[in-house]
Design a protein around this nucleic acid. Structure first.
Lengths: 329, 329
DNA sequence: TTGAAAGCGCTAACAA
DNA sequence: TTGTTAGCGCTTTCAA
């Protein structure tokens, strides 16, 4: 069935008694073709299952019909479902517009995959996901002036980017918790170098306002010691609600609480700035913010395609969030 | 820097006073070129940062220099870090051989992305990650006779595939647990349609041998009810060790145990056939099997590239495993 | 509205 | 060992 070589534009032209250029025009929609000719062509190619050769098309028009997506970072980061969902959004909306997706997974800050992809001219544009940004990837893309969008990253203004409004979301969320009567808050975080973490902390601070003191936030990157302090603090009723900057931190906390025989929400209330499926399945369910990573991918992709097509597009886009009320607060 | 259009093979030929075909030969290594000429060419193109136009090359040689990777299945499946690690292995080893990687993420059993990728002839071969065995993707690839490898899937012999030896691993693992003195075992599983689950169950049965009875395995797909029975059983000392078919199930179990006030390993011993990072961070650490998904990707990729190059390659490859001893047994 | 023809940049016979 | 030449399949001027 697919053994025999594929049918070309020439075959179509011959069969229909028109020229190749006419067929090309009929298909692409560029240039005038009579309605009748166009229909004949379209019908014929559909009947014959004709699909243009992407390479030939690419060579002639110097466009690949591919976009690249770059996932860089530590393993711990890449493991987050976040990327899967992003990827899904990107693939789907790229596909809907006839683009295929290439992926570059560069783990240790080496951008080999990305560089090869660009240097080989395999893609028309690139989407950079979180973490990829402050490394050389950005400079590299800038230097090669290829269209690109970053997801969830950059302070560097002037580049096209899309993200959730973490600061705003976390502020509103924290305010809500305060309104419910919590006063002695503690924010737990890790990955303090991540831009998103800093944004979340900022939102928290804004919500707390002038009552903020530096002992209201705590880095728990190095597991046991810091967590031990937290548990002590809870026993001494130093806190009434603990907010976690992400679901990983929250999982850790919940583990420790259960080991220590402390229950939620009786002994301590718990909330999280980022609730994945893991948290929503927890008992009691954890009150948390939900961000839709899939949306992020979809939006980034449509911005990129606009950029590629030379159309107008916004420079920065901030997506919304949702609050998942649970039983933990 | 990259504004000015890229230098072509013609430019190189002109500059060096040789023909384009000589340059082509020097670069590809196919066909004879004198050592001297070859060096001149190689030096020059390095100096000039010449990179062949992948599309032109592809058009002329009808090969894309891309491989495709397909991730199909439910969200729950795709969320597993398994895919990330596979992907990483694939990207890296593809990259090492000069191939770029395209990704098709088809979520709901529709193979749109895959089909587009194939029909557009964007890839030279495909790697299919864990999918339902009767998946259309498989039929589609067979029909288009494009080289492909499946990872962790198919019973369908005759197709190229790579997987871990789940059956063997689970048998040995279970035997080890029995040797430690556990007698009243229970195997918890979900996703019973997955090939890998069936293999794991089979290994378990083999280890138990003729003492096996059907109430030694239990499907806990529908959370609460089945899990409730398990908890009851534990209280009645019906089991001394519970083995989970994967880390998801194990997480669920651990949650329930902690809610029920049962402790590991005092009240009940726990082990898992698949231990992700989540489990290894648990306290107490869970005794489990480790499979390296990255290896799977690497191996699959090298098999695929062999296939593409028309070289010999094994039809089936079974990779090893590791036992992570924890404090839970 | 349509066609002819010249590329796009590379590979691979076939000659030399 | 090297060069000549004819494509690979499509797009895109420029004429008709």
């Amino acid at each position: 069935m697919s053994k025999d070589k594929a049918i070309t534009i020439e075959d179509v032209a011959l069969a229909l008694g028109v020229s190749e250029s006419t067929v090309s025009r009929a298909i692409s929609g560029k240039g005038r073709v009579s309605e009748e000719t166009r229909n004949r062509v379209l019908n014929y190619i559909k009947k014959m299952n004709y699909v243009p050769n992407a390479m030939a098309k690419g060579l002639a028009s110097s466009a690949t019909g591919n976009i690249g997506i770059v996932v860089t970072g530590s393993h711990a980061f890449m493991e987050l479902p976040f990327f899967q969902y992003c990827l899904e959004g990107i693939c789907e909306s790229a596909g809907a517009k006839g683009y295929d997706t290439m992926i570059a997974m560069d783990v240790f800050g080496k951008n080999r995959q990305l560089e090869r992809m660009i240097v080989n001219r395999k893609v028309d544009g690139v989407i950079l996901t979180r973490t990829a940004t402050d490394d050389d990837a950005l400079k590299f893309l800038l230097k090669h002036d290829i269209p690109f969008i970053t997801i969830g990253t950059a302070e560097n203004s002037g580049i096209y980017q899309v993200d959730h409004d973490h600061c705003e979301a976390c502020r509103i969320f924290t305010e809500g918790i305060i309104k419910k009567g919590c006063e002695r808050l503690l924010l737990l975080y890790s990955e303090k170098t991540a831009y998103v973490t800093r944004k979340r902390i900022q939102g928290f601070k804004e919500a707390v306002g002038k009552k903020y003191t530096s002992d209201m936030i705590l880095d728990v990157s190095d597991d046991s010691k810091a967590m031990g302090l937290v548990i002590d603090g809870i026993r001494k009723h130093k806190y009434d609600c603990i907010i976690c900057a992400d679901d990983r931190v929250c999982m850790k906390l919940l583990d420790r609480l259960s080991v220590s025989g402390l229950t939620v929400p009786e002994d301590i209330k718990v909330a999280s700035f980022y609730g994945s499926e893991l948290l929503s399945k927890n008992r009691p369910s954890i009150t948390s913010l939900k961000f839709d990573a899939r949306d992020l991918g979809t939006k980034a992709c449509s911005m990129l395609l606009n950029l590629i097509d030379g159309e107008e597009t916004v420079k920065e886009e901030l997506l919304g969030y949702e609050i998942a009320e649970g039983q933990s607060v």
